[in-house]
Design a protein around this nucleic acid. Structure first.
Length: 154
DNA sequence: GCCAACGTTGGC
DNA sequence: GCCAACGTTGGC
């Protein structure tokens, strides 16, 4: 069992979009960074915990808890010329980009980035590192435990 | 809108 | 394979 933090711009896919999706599940389309892709492709297993993070918005932060709901499979948007995520170098025979499905566990009160920064126990959380831009990052079990039980109790 | 940090591209 | 130029991310 592993834990992850996944960023999404709420204008693209928010925690409410996830809550309102069929089976409260969304395909995590649009990742176009190899490191983030590799985490999904090589690191994730069904049932892994996910912190759903809102980025590039008025108050960035953790907006809910989710879980990995599929094994990795090719991101269909890479094959679609009409999609902003189209990748002309990808083919169905040789897909470049993979994704997983993500399923809502529960929406939480927003836990702002500014608050996360003030918590000593979370100082080494990857999302807080200077210059961090990765949209998918691993979360240490102790960080997961602290966030889900102390900061966002059920 | 600014800008720091980082990833990718492509000429050599 | 180096590295400058360029593009993107994302907080502020």
């Amino acid at each position: 069992m592993k834990y992850w933090l996944m960023k999404s711009e709420p204008e693209e896919a928010s925690i409410d979009d996830l809550a309102n999706a069929p089976r409260q599940t969304l395909a995590w389309t649009g990742v176009r960074n190899y490191q983030a892709r590799n985490f999904m492709r090589d690191g994730m297993q069904i049932g892994d915990g996910v912190l759903f993070y809102h980025s590039s918005c008025a108050v960035p932060g953790i907006a809910g808890i989710a879980e990995v709901a599929s094994t990795p499979y090719p991101d269909p948007t890479q094959f679609d010329p009409a999609s902003p995520y189209h990748d002309p170098k990808a083919s169905r025979e040789a897909p470049r980009w993979v994704l997983v499905d993500v399923k809502l566990v529960r929406k939480t009160p927003l836990l702002p980035l500014s608050e996360l920064r003030d918590i000593p126990e979370l100082a080494s959380l990857q999302i807080l590192a200077k210059g961090n831009r990765l949209s998918v990052t691993p979360v240490a079990p102790e960080h997961w435990e602290f966030i889900t039980t102390r900061l966002l109790p059920a």
